[in-house]
């Protein structure tokens, strides 16, 4: 447990250092839980994070589509990230990450926190058919979800549905 003095010192240090003085390259990630499994998504791939937003259900040929939700005055389709990844679906995922590439929301179970990782914290795994990255979060290994790939997957399914 950190004491109040340490908190104060860390808080002051944060404003004392000059901007851009940290030369070490860092990458921001969000630690999340999808289908009961720990995962991570890059902060740069989303434009916003919302919680407990109402989702209006709508019929679709894509099973992973939960419905429509509003974000900053815009209507975005919300997909179940666990269903897209082939994981067990949660009953009612609270959290929605709005993708930056396309105005699409991905719902997941729980938000574990913000992680600022170095290059050394991200490892590349070749155990599967495709290359994947894994974030070392303490004792845990969090597979990093590439939302761009997920969006491409949705687009392919949508095209197959149109044909």
């Amino acid at each position: 447990m950190s004491t109040a003095r340490e908190l104060r010192r860390a808080f002051d240090a944060g404003f004392a250092a000059a901007i851009g003085s940290d030369e070490v390259a860092r990458e921001d990630l969000l630690a999340i839980s999808v289908g009961g499994h720990p995962h991570a998504i890059r902060l740069g791939e989303i434009t916003g994070l919302v919680v407990d937003r109402p989702i209006v259900q709508m019929p679709s040929r894509i099973p992973a589509l939960l419905g429509l939700a509003s974000s900053r005055g815009a209507i975005v389709p919300v997909f179940d990230l666990a269903a897209l990844l082939g994981l067990p679906r949660a009953t009612s995922p609270r959290w929605i990450a709005i993708a930056a590439r396309a105005r699409v929301g991905f719902a997941f179970d729980a938000f574990a926190g913000h992680r600022r990782a170095t290059v050394a914290d991200i490892a590349t795994s070749t155990t599967g058919p495709d290359e994947s990255e894994v974030l070392r979060d303490g004792d845990r290994q969090r597979p990093i979800i590439h939302l761009a790939s997920v969006i491409e997957q949705i687009e392919r399914e949508a095209e197959r549905g149109e044909r």
Binding site: D28, L30, L43, G44, I46, T47, G48, L49, V50, V51, G113, H114
Partner: peptide
């Protein structure tokens, strides 16, 4: 604290942009 965290994360995203 959770809402503050969400705000901070969104602020970080906005700051990055």
């Amino acid at each position: 604290a959770e809402q503050t965290n969400i705000l901070a994360i969104n602020a970080t995203i906005e700051a990055a942009g």
